[in-house]
């Protein structure tokens, strides 16, 4: 088992373009995941990338039936962005958010996989 896992790591193309995370960065990823609203935001952004704050709020009400305040979502997005899980780009003067799953894969590779 252990040998197979090590072999997989050397074949993992992923690490070629993603610098390994340190413990602080790993902490930020797990902290970001430790909240149901932030996990919902991740789900929403996977379904539909490039969303403004307005779209995220409007669509979360429409699809989950649960209203989220813009201020709450702003704070959650900030935390997700610091963990590297949300990427920001600009369309004109509007800020758009997308999911970056790379830190999730890194968390699996660095720690979770050893326990799966």
């Amino acid at each position: 088992m252990r040998r197979a896992r090590a072999g997989f790591l050397t074949c993992n193309n992923f690490i070629a373009y993603w610098a390994p995370m340190n413990d602080d960065e790993l902490d930020r990823v797990f902290k970001a995941l430790g909240d149901p609203t932030r996990r919902r935001i991740i789900d929403r952004l996977r379904e539909r990338p490039r969303q403004s704050l307005f779209e995220l709020c409007a669509l979360s009400v429409a699809q989950d039936g649960k209203a989220l305040s813009r201020q709450a979502i702003t704070q959650h997005l900030d935390l997700l962005e610091k963990a590297g899980l949300v990427q920001v780009e600009w369309s004109g003067r509007t800020k758009l958010h997308s999911l970056n799953p790379a830190p999730l894969r890194e968390a699996v590779r660095l720690w979770l996989r050893a326990h799966l």
Binding site: S52, L53, F54, E55, R70, T74, G92, R93, T94, K95
Partner: peptide, 9 residues
């Protein structure tokens, strides 16, 4: 400008 940043009509 702040409304436009967040995409708010």
């Amino acid at each position: 400008a702040a409304l436009v940043v967040d995409g708010i009509p």
